[in-house]
Design a protein around this nucleic acid. Structure first.
Lengths: 325, 325
DNA sequence: TGCGTTTGGTAAAACGTTTTAATTACACGT
DNA sequence: ACGTGTAATTAAAACGTTTTACCAAACGCA
């Protein structure tokens, strides 16, 4: 706090021109100036170590070079990987990402939304179902919603083919000879989870549904309900639940895959490291993040272009948690 | 973008007072005004939906109510949990946290540091070893460094008792009858990892050291080196490595804990869900984050208080990945 | 009445930029 | 000598607050 800030005025002084000149030259509007002045100004800038004051700049040009990202649970490695993708492209475009962990708290997410708006973020990436699209729209900022289809034709969106993912899981189980199957998913599923279920039901119209939060704990608890049924295979709404199932089932003396085949969803890194290695539906997590960020940037650059919607594919990766009946 | 911003001037107009009055009242400096004007102003504020412009405010009062947090790898669940702790207390204090994923890239971390400084963050929480304390100091901002002891008496720090953690792991292994043991850790360990090693060597002065990055991949690769030795037990520098070891060992036809006892470090959530459940040294991860944030806030409130250093305890949690020889 | 003191409030400066319209200087053609 | 055009630069407004010093009116009191 000891060294005081060097201002544009001092640079102007040092190079013997007006502050308007300095501002323009340093912002690349170099057309109208003579080579000498240009070098003179730049030299002064370097020599004094001048950095334009961020807030003063923002007062004029209202953009902030900042994107707000809201995720529901930063503790879930899925979002860690997703953020990698988002953040990488944003950083390359010189944007700073403001990460907000909603912690599954609707109110908190709202607060964040308000505060970030006040702070003039240039756009939002919403990866949580908890924020309604109207709320978002009234903020009058570009936003893109991830993995959560909203009223279409009214916002950008990037989706993965959840329906296909659900079907893939079901088909694999069916091919393995399973007839009685269950899916564990939250009691109030978000749109994307619901689509996974729908896809699953394409093959198993009367699959059992077991309640379970989207977390390891949720899966662990769901195991108790599972063993009461006559199902021989489970489809977990995400990998975290599947991991929970592993433990919950073990606690009840059941083995995977001998007693229960289980299929996860996401293909998070850990899926490969768990025993037995988890058969799961792979989403291109990092690519998902990257694509999202790119689309938002495109929207910011060109606010009036037509709404775009992108669908990314998924695939089944067979490992060892599902076996023939 | 259609509705234009409502400014303090309009509020003043609406309540028939000057903008100075509005500003003061709305900032709680309510002492000098009559109850009626106060209510009148507040009413106008509410009625017009006035929100002070963030950037204009920041131009005057230089604080930004923002903390920059830099982590080396957001993909590692340890940092997810840590962030939970940090973010929760910051949010409660009305601070926004700007999360930056260093992605193990020194240069990127530097860039972030520069940019955040320019944007006037009120302080930094550094959880990565890659940024040097001098670099940090020259930013002239309060900062606190986590789990990484720097030149002491010159910055705040919160540490966990890594040395004790290392010793605990070693003692457990010794009690189980192991004599030949190894530790896997990065070739260029950071200060905290080095302390774990030192503690471990307290009991096993000539423990083998196997190179391995702090990731699942790192552990997986290290397994190959491990099986070349005559060690019967491994101490992994963190849980991620331990998980990697599980897989790597399995790929080589070895079983845990029958062939190798393994002990992890961190007690991340996953430790309980893996099979066999991982014996590990528990750090109070979320508390660690919370404490750090609190200390930084305290420093910001009172920049000249004496440097503080806090040491948090660790404990051994026995599960099933280490067994008697 | 006169005078210091409190009360309630405001004018104006300051924060550090960007941007627009104006100004100067000069060359050129007639 | 005079307009005309153009190239280089700048003065000044604007952005929306907070803060400080000052002011007028009312009050207390001998």
């Amino acid at each position: 706090m000891t060294t005081k800030k060097v201002t544009i005025r001092e640079v102007a002084q040092a190079s013997g021109v007006s502050i308007a000149t300095v501002s323009q030259i340093l912002n690349g509007k170099t057309k109208r100036f003579t080579p000498q002045t240009i070098t003179r100004v730049r030299a002064a800038r370097d020599q004094l170590g001048y950095e334009p004051d961020y807030f003063a700049q923002r007062m004029i040009t209202k953009d902030s070079k900042t994107i707000g990202v809201i995720v529901p649970d930063i503790t879930n490695p899925f979002f860690g990987q997703l953020l990698r993708g988002i953040e990488a492209v944003l950083f390359r475009a010189n944007y700073i990402t403001m990460l907000c962990d909603g912690a599954d708290d609707r109110l908190k997410e709202r607060d964040y939304l308000d505060e970030l708006t006040r702070r003039g973020v240039d756009g939002f990436i919403i990866s949580s179902a908890a924020v309604a699209s109207e709320t978002l729209r009234e903020k009058q900022r570009p936003f893109i919603v991830l993995d959560q289809k909203m009223a279409s034709g009214t916002a950008d969106a990037v989706l993965t083919d959840d329906r296909q993912g659900g079907r893939l899981a079901a088909e694999h189980l069916a091919a393995l000879g399973h007839q009685r199957v269950a899916m564990v998913l939250p009691a109030a599923p978000t749109a994307n989870i619901a689509r996974r279920l729908a896809g699953f039901q394409t093959v198993f119209p009367d699959a059992l549904q077991i309640d379970g939060e989207l977390s390891k704990q949720g899966g662990r608890a769901a195991a108790k309900a599972l063993v009461q049924t006559d199902a021989t295979a489970v489809f977990a709404a995400n990998d975290e639940i599947a991991f929970g199932l592993y433990l919950g089932l073990a606690e009840l003396g059941k083995r995977v895959p001998e007693d229960y085949s289980v299929i996860g969803y996401d293909d998070t890194e850990m899926a490969e490291y768990v025993t037995p290695q988890l058969t799961t539906i792979a989403q291109p997590i990092t690519a998902l993040g990257a694509t999202t960020a790119e689309m938002l940037l495109a929207r910011i650059a060109q606010p009036d272009k037509v709404w775009e919607e992108r669908l990314l594919g998924v695939e089944l990766v067979k490992r060892f948690s599902a076996k023939p009946l």
